[in-house]
Amino acid sequence: MRALVARRLDGPDAIELVETAVPEPGPGQVRIAVAAAAVNPVDVAVSRGDLQRLGLTAAREQYGLGWDVAGTVDAVGPGVDLSVGTPVIGLSDLLGRPLKTHADQVVLDATAVAPAPRRLDPVAASTIPLNALTADQALDALALAAGATLLVTGAAGAVGGYAVQLARHRGLDVVALAAPADEGLVRELGARHVVPRGADLPTAVRELVPGGVDGVVDAALVGVAAQEAVRNGGAFAHLVATPGPAPLRGIRVHTVLISADGERLHRIAGLAEAGVVRTRVAGVHDLEDAAAAYRKVAAGGLRGRLVLVPGRR
């Protein structure tokens, strides 16, 4: 099979599409014939060696690329209930693996996959796992009750967009930070208030919510300025491994790092089937054209995810 890997760790232009042996599933694992796999900023970070430099993974000769996947189960290991032929979505959350989801086939733990949303094509479905799971796990960490107020930074982005939708589904009152051009989009996703990017964030939020919001999902990594919009004793979700804001004024600061969760992913897939959350695809590239997709993701500014498809050999 073919697989996309990073060896030189010199960014998108250095990634390689290699021929390698088809992996076999072990106990509790499934092999998925990949139909589509989204490209995320973390993939670009891996290709540049950022995770190794941050000490998040050991040095290796080869890093597999890709976290999200949508496809069909084509082999199962012992102890797996999923049947061959089942359409699934899944997440490869193990850092430093030599092969991941930007490939023709991938092996994942069965606990990291869920049946794919019906009536959603694989390209759209592949944009769900990493970003929607991150948003949902961040909301769980905040533990806000229905009716509470939530600030979502980067609300037009992939994680932020899912955070707005999932927060609204939980009954939260959402304030979104987004570019003026994205105001209509984030309101469609469920935000009641929109603060334009570039505004004095704490002041603007506190004018809308006197005393400050109850919590923040900081998808844009704004940091302290977003924390200053939170009321005393509120909660803050920090979404990267680097240190987050200090827990000033009794604010609970949670570092939320993604972990695969098939049961949670199954629930989110149900919300996608029901139209509660919607997916956004920025474009599709063949696996052989992956470097172009990586360059676009590195440049930023996308609304939705670029998706790789294996195509025909």
Rank of each mutant, 00 (worst) to 15 (best):
Q227R: 02
Q227W: 00
E228A: 08
E228H: 10
A229F: 06
A229L: 08
A229P: 07
V230S: 09
V230T: 14
R231T: 09
N232H: 07
N232R: 12
N232K: 05
N232G: 10
G233S: 01
G234D: 07
G234T: 00
A235V: 01
A235G: 09
F236S: 01
F236G: 01
A237L: 01
H238C: 03
H238R: 00
L239M: 02
V240G: 01
V240D: 10
T242S: 14
P243Q: 06
P243L: 06
P243R: 06
G244A: 04
P245F: 00
A246M: 11
P247T: 02
L248Y: 13
R249D: 13
R249M: 11
R249L: 08
G250F: 02
G250V: 04
G250D: 08
I251N: 05
I251G: 06
V253C: 03
V253M: 04
V253Q: 06
H254K: 12
T255S: 15
L257E: 04
L257A: 08
I258F: 07
A260G: 10
A260T: 05
D261S: 07
G262T: 02
E263Y: 05
E263W: 06
E263F: 04
R264A: 14
R264T: 09
H266D: 14
R267P: 07
R267F: 12
R267T: 15
R267S: 15
R267W: 13
I268N: 07
I268E: 06
L271A: 11
A272I: 07
A272C: 12
E273L: 12
A274S: 15
V276I: 13
V277Y: 02
V277Q: 05
R278W: 07
R278N: 08
R278V: 08
